[in-house]
Design a binder for these strands. Structure first.
Length: 450
RNA sequence: UCCGCGGUAGCUCAAUGGUAGAGCAUCCGACUGUUAAUCGGCAGGUUGCUGGUUCGAGUCCAGCCCGCGGAGCCA
């Protein structure tokens, strides 16, 4: 008799099977015990009846604490009272390790995420983190499938880089033999090299930002997927971003139903990705935000009134603030694409809009429900002279970027792409409160442990 | 870096300047259909650190440490 997985138990109705895993929880009485048994694939209720098992087996089952590791055998029976629809009538019980002081208790809420993150290595066993990280796994697989199916070449960018790609953002400096190196904050520049070699590439890897951000949307280490395509212009880039988000969300809706149920996620808002994403220019958005500001100020909801005060706080020509993004999310209730920002607030490599050189051909995708920017990208400046002006303006050291300028010297073409933060995407899809919950071991300004 | 909030039992939180408490978890016990089971009991503390005010400080004051939320910046 081989072991079976909890997720496959329905195929073994009426059979006696072996299960290997851990006790998640126990309820019961003096003569009847209900072990919640998990093996990673799922959780099943194991019934231990005093009259059906030897005395010592019953006493052991009654004694062992949560997260004791077990190998059991039992009869698989149908039972509508059990969440899974089946349960297991215990026959034999082998305890690999008996545990009595597991530090996490079974609760549904997350009262203090920081305390739980101290024991993240154990917390990942619990119901909610388990569901979120399963969704993350599906998101990452969906991303890979999406690009693979479309003929993109997976083009890994280096982690050690010579210097800043984007100027202002803070980089992690690390000793590198006799020299210094920096952890990458974007694989994009390398992606552009790949696009000119393979046509369509995608960079998928970790990214590091030494920003001292302490919000539920920020990590110092996060995963980013960055497609880059030769001969693709802004409209095409927006099409790609929209299709990719739609594909990923639909995959999760289709394949992670149970996890979304565990997370009590309202899927109605996710299903709206089937509809076209609104595409609004920065300039048009100013008018929309003006209207929203007035509308929210007149609202009876004090939260909206408070939000209203911060809308358009940064003024015309500046980047949108967090309140603006929240308002956009509340208004459209689905991902929104904002394009053609003022060039002053965007990176040096963004291509000028020929129709109005004060703006650049970029696009941000704003997720609703307070998650904010999940995608940032656009068309790259492909003209050597214009690019050089920006390099000088941003005071980017030539020696670290000279290789990149070669891409404009030898066969430059219109091209572009974007970067999507995997954790922000997972945060939105799962509806989890902190982006920290969307990665197995989050790294933040004050946490590198465990 | 700036603004705001917090640190009391393993966890979540109480405690007009006057004997540090509850719920949950652990441990012990009861219960044959429980769904975060329920019920009874035992145990559990240098109240973040240092100093000050006071007859008396978890509480008031000063400094420090640590964390959380937000702004900025970003994905």
């Amino acid at each position: 008799m081989g072991s079976v997985q909890v997720s496959d138990l329905k195929k073994h109705l009426g059979e006696t099977v072996e299960l290997r895993g851990w006790q998640y929880n126990r309820r019961g009485s003096g003569k009847l015990l209900f072990l919640q048994f998990r093996d990673g694939s799922g959780t099943v209720q194991v019934v231990v009846s005093k009259k059906d098992v030897p005395e010592d087996v019953f006493e052991t089952a009654k004694r062992i604490g949560n997260e004791s590791s077990l190998i059991i055998t039992g009869l698989v029976t149908e039972d509508t009272r059990s969440a899974l629809g089946v349960e297991v009538q215990l026959k034999t019980l082998r305890v690999l390790q008996e545990v009595h002081d597991y530090p996490i208790q079974i609760t549904e809420d997350v009262p203090n995420i920081d305390k739980l993150l101290d024991v993240r290595h154990l917390w990942v066993r619990s119901r909610t983190p388990h569901a979120i990280l399963r969704v993350r796994s599906e998101v990452e697989q969906a991303i890979r499938d999406f690009y693979y199916q479309r003929g993109f070449v997976l083009f890994d960018a280096p982690i050690f880089t010579p210097a800043s790609c984007e100027g202002a953002s803070t980089l992690f400096e690390v000793p590198y033999f006799e020299d210094k190196a920096y952890l990458t904050q974007s694989g994009q520049l390398y992606g552009e090299a790949g696009a000119f070699a393979f046509g369509k590439i995608v960079v998928f890897g970790p990214t590091f930002r030494a920003e001292k951000s302490k919000t539920r949307r920020h990590l110092t280490e996060f995963w980013m997927v960055e497609p880059e395509v030769a001969f693709l212009e802004l409209d095409g880039i927006m099409d790609l971003a929209e299709e990719q988000v739609r594909y990923v969300v639909c995959r999760v809706l289709e394949r992670c139903k149970e996890d979304l149920k565990v997370l009590e996620r309202n899927t109605a808002i996710l299903e709206k990705v089937a509809e076209p994403f609104p595409r609004v220019s920065y300039s048009e958005m100013q008018d929309v935000l003006q209207k929203l500001k007035a509308e929210f100020a007149a609202s009876s909801d004090p939260e909206l009134v408070k939000l209203s005060a911060d809308i358009l706080k940064n003024g015309l020509g500046d980047d949108l603030g967090a309140a603006d993004e929240t308002a956009v999310g509340l208004h459209y209730k689905r991902p929104v694409m904002i394009h053609r920002y003022p060039s002053a607030v965007k990176a040096f490599y963004m291509k000028r809009d020929p129709a109005n050189p004060d703006y650049v051909l970029c696009v941000d995708v704003i997720a609703p429900e307070g998650v904010g920017e999940v995608i940032g990208g656009g068309q790259r400046e492909d003209n050597m002279d214009l690019l050089m002006k920006q390099v000088e303006k941003h005071a980017i050291p030539l020696q670290s970027i000279n290789w990149y300028l070669d891409l404009r010297r030898y066969g430059s073409v219109p091209h572009g792409g974007f970067g999507m933060g995997v954790e922000r995407c997972v945060q939105w899809i799962t509806g989890c409160q902190h982006v920290r919950e969307a990665i197995p071991f989050p790294r933040t300004i004050y946490r590198t442990n465990p």
